[in-house]
Amino acid sequence: MSIEKIKTIIRKEWADVFKHRLVLLSMLFIPVAFTTVPVAALMVTGAAQIGEVGKELAAQASPICPPGLTALQCYQLQVLNQFMLLFMFTPLILPVTIAAYSIVGEKTTHSLEPILATPITTIELLVGKNLAAAIPATIGTWFGFLIYVAAAGLLMGLPLARALPSQAVWWVALLLIGPQLSILSVNFAMMVSSRVNEPHVAEQLSALVVLPLLLIFFGQVGGLIILDRSLILQLAVGLVGVDGLLFYLAVRVFDRETILSRWR
């Protein structure tokens, strides 16, 4: 596998895809939107005084709270932690647009055939496309998290802004789960893109990748699932296998012959 060729594909993708206004807007809009929601929620609830239920929850949360926080701050930290799932949606949704355009876009401009005629392997091509979509999505997620921490500090005080990133669970979510979800999303989008002809159709179908996470989200809202350290770790480990399987399937589905002979 040639690193140089992979880097070439990444540079090409970024140079080409990011000149597409729609892709660029989606890349900016999604992290902003997914950060605005929790920040707005904090603005509404952050300054509120803790009620009876809140006191009970704060008491439950205090043993796992970072030291130095008051009961109210501890409660607020648990509220902040509940939005972690939104930072998993970002890396899942962001690459869909890039990946859909990077494969179907090549179909529509007929630029894939000359690429496939070079000595690049399918794996090099797909690794390049994977990273080209996953890296900006991951960076976009991290950028959103920085805004989130800053907003928490502004609205709820500096101790909370410090406590939020001090929890290992966030690091696992942002450094392990985020990139893995991006890769999952890219591979799913690439599998879909290899089978359809319109970028918009590819994008819409690829968006179905959020369904499993949406189930977790509703489970969390309904109190059926608690997004705790154990679940986060299980997700991180499970995604390694899922990503490996999806990449394998994406390579299988990305059949040069099918793509060249059936794409019109």
Binding site: K5, T8, A15, K19, T118
Partner: peptide
């Protein structure tokens, strides 16, 4: 190929640089 299949949003130079790299 039958259709040039160029990257329209890239310059002529950039188009060729990509392939020069892929052909090593």
């Amino acid at each position: 190929t039958e259709t040039p299949g160029l990257y329209d949003r890239l310059s002529a130079l950039h188009n060729l640089q990509i392939y020069a790299s892929l052909y090593e």
